[in-house]
Structures are given as C-alpha cells and as structure tokens.
Nucleic acid binder design. Structure first.
Lengths: 294, 294
DNA sequence: TATTGCATTTTATAATTATAATATGTAATT
DNA sequence: AATTACATATTATAATTATAAAATGCAATA
C-alpha cells in the first residue's frame, strides 16, 4: 500500500557499477559513495547490499561495511540466479504502443477504459500515460480522455523523423564544439566490428537496435551540446516503438556496420565535413529501405 | 472536491473563435460544432454558452440554441466585464522558475518542502512539476525529491540553446518541403512592421517576446516537418523563462524587426539559401548581445 | 435532417488516510 | 578522518472515497 522500493533498481545499478569498473574480489563498496553515484540516500543502498549479500555477491564485515565477494567477471554469471532486474519501463507502456500500432485502440480512449482493458490501477496507468505524453505520441484532451497523435502511425511522421535525425546528426558533427571521444570511439568500433563479423546473425533484435542507437547517440554526444543530444534521444525513443514492429533485414547489417566504421574512420582522419555528409546519406538511406506497417 | 471545470477555458475559446472568424451579430453557434472544434463534449460547451449569455454576448432561443448577440468587433470590448480568462499556466510554475533563477531554491528539493513553501496541495504541485519535467529543467530523483537541471541557470546551456535554435531554423528553411505560407507571411509582416514603427517603445515585454517567438515558429512551421517545429517550440518555452529575467534592450528592436522583414523579403524573392544564412546570423547575433543573470 | 433540451451514465479529481520506504543525525568503530 | 550501525524523522505512495464535471442517448422541436 506504500510506494514500491527503488532498492531493486539500486541492486541492478551496483552490479552494473561493479562490472563497468572491473572491480576485483575483496574491494570495498562504501555506502555513501554508492548513494552519491545513484543519487539516493544510504538507506536504499544498504537494502540493496543486504540483498546482494544473500545472493553471495558481496560479503558484510561488522563495522567495516560490504566487500565484493568475487571478481566482476564472475558477477555476471552469478547474476541471473536472483531475480533483481531493473524494470526501467513498465510493460504497460509497450502494450499501449503495440495495441495502438495493431489498430486495437481507437484514437480516443478514456482512462477508465484503459484501466478495465489492462486491469491496472489508475496510478500505474497514469505513470505510463504521462511518460507517453512526454514523448509526444499521446495527449490529454481538455475534458475527459486521451488521444493518440499520428506520430506513431503515419507514414508522413515516419519520414519526417528520418529527415530530422539526418539533419540533427549531420549538423551536430559540424559544430565547432564537436570533439571525438577516443574512448567512446574505441568502444563503438569494437561493438560495430562484433556486429559486422557475425553478430548480425545471432544478436537479438533488441540488442541490434540498441547498438545502433548507441552508436548514433555517441556521435551526437561528441558535439558537447545537450540540446542536440536530447533531440536525438527523444526521437530514438519513438523509433524504438515503431521499428520493433518492422522485421529487421539482417542482410543489410554488414553494410550498415561497415558504414558506421567508415564514419569513425573519417572523423578520426579529421575529415569531418566528409564524415557529416556521409552520415546524412547513411541515415536517409535507411529510411528509403524500411517500410513500417502503417 | 471534484475536479475543476474546463468550461471557463471553453468560454475563452468561443470568444476567440468568434473573433478570429469575424462573426456578425445574429449568427448561429451550433453546440456540436463548437464541441468538435475544442475536442470536448456538448456538456462543457453548453455551460460556457450559458455563461456567455449572462454576460450578454450570446442570446438563447428556445429549441434553436445560441446566437451571437453582437459583432465580433464589439465582443472584444464587452469581454473584460466578466472574469473568464484562460489560465493556461499555473502561476506556481513560474514561481518555481523564478525562485530557482533567484537562487532561492536548492538544487534538490522535496515535494513536501515545496508544498509547505508555496502552501499548495500536492496534486497542484505535481501538475507543475510534471510539466517542468516534460520541459526538461527538473527531474525526479530515484528516491525522494526532485533536482533542478542546469538548463535554466548555466551560461553554457544558454549558449548551446542559441546554437541549437540557429541550426534548426536554418536547416528547416533549407528543407525541400519548406513552403512559405502567404497568409502567415502577411500577418507576420504586419506584426513586425507595427513593432518596428513604435511598438517597440510601448508594447509590454511579454508582447514583444511573444511576437518574436511567433515569428520564428511561423518560419519553422513552413518546413512542414513537425519534428523541427516541436524542437523549436520546446526550446522557446525554456527561453521564455530565462529571458523574462533579462532586461530588454528596446533600442535593439528596430534592428531586429527590420532583420525579420528582410528574411521575409528574401524568402518571398525565392532566395532561400541567402535567407537561411541570414537567419542563422540573426539568431547567433542575438546570443552575443544578451547576457543572462547566471 | 440537423439541432436542441434533458435525463442518465460515465468519468476523473481532490481530499484523506495508513504505511512502507527514504533520508538523516549521531555515537561507535576502524 | 572516514565509515558504519542504528535510531529517528521525513517523505511519498497506493488505496479509498464523495462529488462535480463530462459524455452520451434520445425524444422533441425547428
């Protein structure tokens, strides 16, 4: 009857933290440091650490705190035995998107209607609806009810989105503040290479989509301008909903990854204008090939 | 104890509708038509019409509905006698922005803290906070409380915003779908001319700011791409908060309006590339001159 | 046939809790 | 000096209403 806890989220955060910092068995995990890192108080961090102790991932020592019980590499395999997984998005959110894309929901719907349909409490429904409104594909009507915008379902919006992405990304790269981040480039190169050398046949659709988005967002982040980055992130969230419904043409992926690598090459060679132009063509090319169910 | 009504809003909408359609005394106001126009049911429209009847703006005829009691031109003067005014934004929203800009609010605040400080109910506070989160200058923390982003207060963000606007607007104008809207151009020309010929001394700061924003949004709307338009609207909402705190240098306005008119001239002469380049310079020029209190 | 007027159903809100979770101050420990 | 352990204070949520408002069906009317 009270709110749900953030500590499962914190548990997942700690695991991720340990992994990305490649920590070794025996290293100390100071409570306040973790709390600051995740922007919460020590309370939920302690709850999370207690949980991790029962999972055998950390060890508690009286008056000294918690210490990692195994190397970061082993943590990953130990992880799935417990159930802590961040549920960063309510499945309800996706169901609404899917049902709208499948034509199962009218353009106008009332809150009570949705509550009955999905059998959820109003508070939970409203959370999803607010998130959706923030993303701009539904809006609250002045009286009762909510309305879907055409953002998700119209061919025209779909194409406008590609134009917007192509322009924003190209221009971001041309900004005087653009500064390639060596470390990020190295990581991106590794991911794209793995994807091109076989990953395109074995990775899940979600993994492929995520890798692609992260590549593009990494490039825009190099512009050091948060408005460009926010704009791209915002439109990528939308894309995720729409393109999940498009069958991935895996045969195109080697070409896509090699283009990604080519962009990295051009930037690193200081040929920024060429890179930006190529990036533009790369994005617009993708729009011409895919066809959404509309 | 129940929700507040939308009918005052509808009342204002009807007045605006009558005005922009330049309706004459005696014209019929069909209930369903108004309901459709404002996306509500007949119920709040009827409530609004009843209100307008008591104000003497419309007349009811039994079984025939409501009819305008005076020409649209007269409606405007009759309007202020009643109290119906749309309150499209909760003043609380602005108070939060002001208090943050004035340094009266810490970077982190709890909901209860804000409720006590402003003496408002949680529901009302949350509405403003959600709106603010949507605009991106505050965010909910994972545990308790909310945090301000630096969007409002940092010089760097301020400058990034100008770069973003300049790029988006220029690129919007260069899109193949860009199509100047004659009617809108005519209106914009009238407004900018009025502002340049004396309005800059007498108009209120809010009016000047609104005219400026509408000019730029009108230009971007001609691109026929909603993503570009949304991006500009989004950043203009932010600008409104920040720039209200900057003293307007009215001596610059004649120059600004003449630049606006010059842009319209170039577009109408078909010199789009020049217009876009000039627009870019125009926006970046403004950023160099103004200095926000940061 | 389109629209109103009215009665009825449906909807969403604002206020009010109980309660679990988060935040935090401080003495004890290393 | 930094950190933990624990006690206490503070915070936000989820559930539950009562109620006004919005939506809607339909007979009456123009």
């Amino acid at each position: 009857m009270a709110r749900q806890s953030v500590s499962p989220q914190i548990t997942a955060n700690i695991l991720e933290f340990v992994k990305t910092n490649e920590m070794r068995a025996g290293e100390h995990l100071p409570c306040q440091m973790l709390a600051d890192a995740f922007r919460v108080s020590r309370a939920p961090v302690n709850a999370a650490l207690k949980k991790l102790e029962t999972m055998g991932i950390v060890r508690a020592e009286p008056n000294r705190g918690y210490f990692l019980a195994m190397d970061a590499a082993k943590v990953e395999t130990a992880k799935p035995e417990g159930e802590p997984q961040r549920e960063e998005e309510d499945p309800l959110y996706f169901r609404i998107a899917e049902d709208r894309l499948a034509g199962k929901l009218d353009e106008r719907v009332s809150e009570n209607e949705l509550m009955r349909l999905y059998d959820v409490a109003r508070s939970r429904l409203l959370k999803s609806l607010h998130r959706i409104a923030e993303e701009g594909w539904m809006e609250r009507l002045p009286g009762n009810g909510w309305a879907f915008r055409e953002t998700l379902t119209s061919r025209k919006s779909y194409e406008e989105g590609y134009v917007f992405r192509a322009v924003i990304e190209q221009q971001a790269m041309l900004l005087p503040t653009f500064q390639p981040n060596e470390e990020e480039f190295r990581k991106a190169r590794a991911v794209q290479t793995a994807l091109g050398e076989g990953g395109y046949e074995t990775w899940s659709r979600a993994e492929i989509f995520k890798a692609n988005n992260e590549f593009h967002e990494m490039l825009v982040a190099c512009s050091q301008n948060d408005f460009f980055l926010d704009a791209i992130k915002r439109i990528n969230r939308l894309r995720r909903l729409i393109e999940y419904h498009i069958t991935i043409d895996r045969s195109r992926l080697p070409r896509q990854t090699s283009e990604h690598l080519h962009i990295l090459d051009l930037v690193e060679a200081g040929r920024r204008t060429e890179a930006a132009a190529f990036l533009y063509t790369h994005i617009m090319g993708a729009s011409r090939i895919k066809t959404p169910r509309v």
